[in-house]
Design a protein around this nucleic acid. Structure first.
Length: 581
RNA sequence: CGGGGCGUAGCGCAGCCUGGUAGCGCGCCUGCCUUGGGCGCAGGAGGUCGGAGGUUCGAAUCCUCUCGCCCCGACCA
């Protein structure tokens, strides 16, 4: 491609509204432009890289027997009603009506439509297993789009679905996806770690996320550096010592109400005149699980993990209760709540597992301005269900080996789910087994965010001057810079190289603009093309060009006759592919 | 949704408090000059000041409403 005739709008200055590196550089280097919040136009450079990413994805999906589909993004309400997700998806789903007034939505994912196909056409276990996938546009009305391409409302997803006759088959499909994903991300230049994750609105029995560790990410993952344990903090567990410290100081004493006027926070209660340490307090939180109240109790100095409460309660939609709802249910305002004496109210009540057996604790009395002391969990909260509900903290013991856990930010680029029969049962996708009995198909679903790979690659590979693309997904393999366009010899040499390289399958961006050398260097660095070939008067006099890798400080003089072979080798060595000439 | 911030030329910003002339840098166009890390000089084009309403002789500036965008907290590829 010739720079002089290309649409590559680079910027000298950092766009004011971009905060993360990938966003700043994608805009500055002319890869994307914003149309609206969370909606971006993909410009030619980005499109080239995205096509390379999807090529990698296709190769690896096909390698595990995936068959490529292309399903509609525009879906009728009915199929989403069947799975129950028309309501579960809530405001996150874009909805619209057709001219007849029928409800439609823009699909956020495609379990429903693929399940419709499966139930209509799959009759026998002999047709299984099947692996179906597509690379398609997804729409999600995110509450808060942010960080350029990292969190958007319209994006490209590779989503695949496995259909098996039993759990053993699902395990196999899940494992082959795991390996395919590891290859895909590796080939795209990403280092990922696999973590146990919460399944969220997808449902199903288990899931693994592929995470790129970077501060630009929004997830927190806990990992152990001495064993293989890694989990999203939504799900992570830890070993924490919880001695029954307060039992000795009157743990068996009778419950006692005491006045705490104006005290509505853990912190306030921990200060004089009360001086109740946070780890002696019970934090009582009221949630609405599918619009029915549930109560969660964690230690005062712990944080409730909402994902864990969602799992414990079995709720599809979980939200904190509003203040009015709480007042109605418990007769007190937040800040004075407690679980003691609620046994007969029959609310589902969960208590964090680390509190089991403890006594000598303090909790709200469900009466504004009062708390209870000498609370004994076995005596006063016997009806509460004990579950792991707390958020892990860095430094706590790894649940596997006990060594301290590390907590760090990461970006989710892929997520694989064992769905089981969650969709086949609700939507009636069954096949006959060997004995002629109808059995629900056992499903898995697997997603990759394509644009996120692009952005993650920049987060991982960039410097002060710009992007540093891995060869495999770089928009071009080589930037060819004639340094003095007014010099006919330089121009001709560059043109000749451009033809030879292109013919050899090397993708070259020829900067044939009538610009000064500095401008070309800056743009080549900013765009981040892996190899730069500078053709200048000085080198040419000796029949040589300057060969420089984007990352390195120095260049090397290479004889003109050697350039093509060297370029082809560099493309292959970098994991890139030569274009079909 | 809750909290905070910002909308003035393609980009980055000043002007607003204290109403009256819309300005700077980059980019863009023309010419000359220069030519190995975003050259220099000269000339030039380009703006419904996000939108609507109000106050006023007069509004980018004051008031009301509204739309949009960004950031921080609850969701997900």
């Amino acid at each position: 491609m010739r720079m002089s005739r290309s649409f590559v709008p680079t910027l000298k200055e950092v766009p004011a509204d971009a905060t993360v590196a990938s966003h700043q550089l994608l805009v500055r280097a002319g890869f994307i432009r914003q149309l609206a919040a969370g909606i971006y136009s993909v410009l030619p450079l980005a499109q080239r890289s995205l096509l390379k990413i999807t090529d990698v994805v296709r190769e690896e999906m096909n390698a595990i027997g995936g068959q490529e589909f292309y399903l509609p993004a525009l879906n009728p309400r009915e199929v989403w009603e069947e799975s129950g997700r028309w309501s579960v998806m809530g405001e996150n789903m874009f909805r619209l009506k057709d001219r007849k007034g029928a409800d439609l939505c823009l699909a956020m994912t495609h379990e429903e439509v693929f399940t419709v196909l499966a139930r209509a056409e799959l009759r026998s276990y002999r047709q299984l297993p099947q692996t179906w996938y597509q690379i398609q546009t997804k729409f999600r009305d995110e509450p808060r789009p942010k960080s350029g391409l990292l969190r958007v409302r319209q994006f490209t997803m590779k989503d695949s679905y496995s259909f098996d006759k039993d759990n053993a088959g699902l395990d196999t499909a899940f494992e082959s996806h795991r390996q395919a994903y590891a290859k895909i991300f590796g080939r795209c230049g990403l280092k990922t770690i696999q973590v146990d994750a919460h399944s969220g609105a997808m449902g199903g029995s288990g899931s693994t996320e592929f995470m790129v560790p970077t501060d630009a990410g929004e997830d927190l993952i806990a990992s152990c550096e001495s064993c293989a344990y890694a989990a999203n903090t939504e799900k992570a567990e830890s070993k924490v010592e919880t001695p029954n410290t307060y039992a000795e100081s009157g743990g068996t004493a009778a419950l006692q109400k005491f006045a705490t006027p104006g005290v509505t926070t853990i912190e306030a209660l921990s200060k004089p005149p009360h001086g109740v340490k946070a780890d002696q307090q019970l934090k009582t939180l009221i949630y609405m699980a599918d619009e029915k109240p549930v109560i969660a109790i964690v230690r005062g100095d712990d944080q409730l993990n909402e994902a864990k409460l969602q799992t414990a309660s079995g709720a599809q939609i979980l939200r904190p209760a509003h203040a009015e709802e709480i007042l109605k249910l418990l007769g007190a305002k937040p800040g004075s709540l407690g679980g003691v004496g609620l046994g007969e109210k029959k609310f589902p009540l969960f208590i964090d597992a680390r509190l089991a057996g403890l006594s000598g604790l303090v909790t709200g009395a469900n009466e504004d301005g009062f708390h209870l002391q000498h609370v004994s969990v076995p005596r006063d909260l016997a009806y509460a269900v004990s579950r792991d509900l707390r958020m892990v903290n860095a430094g706590e013991g790894c649940p596997k080996c006990g060594k301290p856990l590390v907590v760090g930010k990461a970006l989710e680029v892929g997520h694989i789910f064992k769905l089981g029969t969650r969709y086949s049962e609700t939507m009636g996708a069954r096949v006959l087994d060997e004995a002629g009995r109808e059995q629900p198909i056992v499903m898995g679903s697997y997603g990759i965010g394509v644009e996120r790979i692009l952005a993650a690659a920049i987060e991982l590979h960039h410097d002060q001057d710009g992007c540093k693309w891995p060869m495999s997904i770089a928009p071009f393999h080589i930037a060819l810079l004639p340094l003095q366009m007014q010099d006919a010899l330089v121009r001709e040499a560059a043109e000749k190289l451009y033809l030879e390289l292109t013919k050899a399958g090397v993708e070259v961006l020829l900067d044939d603009r009538d610009e000064r050398a500095g401008v070309k260097f800056k743009d080549a660095d900013l765009i981040g093309i892996p190899v730069r070939i500078a053709v200048g008067k000085k080198g040419l006099a000796e029949g040589k060009i300057e060969w420089k890798l984007r990352g390195s400080k120095d260049f090397e003089l290479v004889t003109l006759a050697d350039v093509v072979a060297r370029a082809q080798q560099a493309v292959r060595d970098g994991g890139g592919k030569l274009a079909r000439a």
